[in-house]
């Protein structure tokens, strides 16, 4: 059973070289696997453990701690809506309600076509341009007046 690809192993080894101890590359390894596969399966956890000389339980203890490591499959695009205080003051609830309505899903769910997963996230550090959200790696700001049509247009960019 080969749990990680050559490429994944290569990338993990590169990160591992940055640290005094191999275990320190655990988070990087999880992110590398997630970059390639979208999420981290039990197999991948075992693969990372084997590569870093750790145990699957120890790797999973780390994986399940961090909210940006997905231990279940997610959609092609993850929409993270900032639900922290400045965005809340500036109308985040309206934004997330709109997203839920347009996508037809609640937080933690994935659209049936596997395109979007919707999650809340804490402060994105762009509070002067609140409310904000992250789709994939793109931060979208100044969404106070975003309406359904504008949102649809925005989502169009994420096939």
């Amino acid at each position: 059973m080969k749990m990680l690809t050559e490429e994944e192993n290569r990338e993990i080894d590169r990160e591992r070289a940055h640290y005094e101890q191999p275990r320190a590359a655990t988070i990087e390894a999880l992110k590398i696997v997630q970059k390639h596969r979208g999420w981290v399966s039990d197999d991948a956890v075992a693969g990372i453990a084997a590569r870093l000389g750790s145990s699957p339980a120890a790797v999973d203890a780390v994986a399940t701690f961090y909210n940006l490591i997905y231990r279940r499959p997610v959609g092609r695009h993850v929409v993270h809506v900032c639900d922290s205080v400045s965005c809340w003051v500036m109308g985040q609830t309206k934004l997330s309600d709109l997203l839920k309505a347009r996508l037809g899903i609640d937080y933690g769910q994935t659209t049936p076509d596997g395109r979007f997963t919707l999650l809340p996230i804490c402060c994105l550090g762009t509070c002067d341009r609140a409310p904000a959200m992250l789709i994939g790696e793109d931060t979208h700001r100044d969404l106070e007046t975003l309406d359904a049509a504008a949102l649809d247009a925005l989502l169009e960019r994420y096939p």
């Binding site: 039990d42 145990s55 699957p56 339980a57 701690f65």
Partner: peptide, 19 residues
């Protein structure tokens, strides 16, 4: 032992095995 650990965070910490 290597097969028991703490998983999750905040008030959702779980003590058990990976599987």
């Amino acid at each position: 032992g290597t097969d028991l650990d703490a998983f999750g965070a905040h008030d959702n910490v779980y003590f058990g095995r990976a599987q």
